[in-house]
Amino acid sequence: MKPAAFEYRRVTTVAEAVKLLRETPDAKIIAGGQSLVPLMNFRLTRPSLLVDVNGVKALQHVGWDGAYLRIGSLVRHQQIADHAEIQKHFPVLTVAAKHIGHWAIRNRGTIGGSLAHADPASEWSAATVTLQAEIDVEGPQGIHMVPASEFFLGYYSTVVQPDELIVAVRIPYPKFRIGFAEMARRRGDFALAGAYVEDAGNGEGFVTWFGVADKPVRVPTLLPDNMETRREAWQQALETLAIADDSKPRLHLAVQMAERAWQHSRFDGARYLSEEAGGNQPL
């Protein structure tokens, strides 16, 4: 299991990266490499050129951009998990970050890499869709903003063109209470099913599943107080999706994760980050 040969270029600006991508059609960006390198080791992908963006300072920051939280594409999962500002204003991202892979993976893997890879079970993909984030993509024509809802096309597929790269994610301040839950066989595994649920407080809200369909979709749903009717609402919401595995256990899990996420959305402050809600994972 050794990767096929490639050429390697390290860049310090996005413009340089775009130029190289344009010149070499099968070039690929490498950031954290935690999804890309396994694929290369298995020789499932074999770019002729790797453009290393780890030295691009402009992609490394988390900060406010007006009403938006801007997370540079090169920000590592663990940085997000540890970020005090994120924990304060977007605790759901803190909780989600801690569910990604293992510590060593989180130390290197980046949010931009996750979005570009577009695994349907990715915590970040679904988070951006839930939070109605905008994803900044830069190419030869400059930067354009893609709403997360239009960003993912399906399995491992996004609107990013071969000569473009993700530079940042911009997340508006959440309008609703949001809960997160996922079920994986072991710590660090991709979820068999996971969900973000937004509760608008008026008996309605949204659910965004991951690991269930070919991409995350934010589905409006009723949120009745009664558990049985709520379960029916989850099932109705599910039916609107292109379900990947419609076996009974998977549908059961999808419903349960939505329910669990909704329950977590009702937690406040410290309880939100507690073990109960899955947020008190150390590290």
Partner: peptide
């Protein structure tokens, strides 16, 4: 597996 358990329970 979890699928087995869910199958049995449901």
């Amino acid at each position: 597996t979890p699928d087995d358990v869910i199958e049995w329970i449901t």
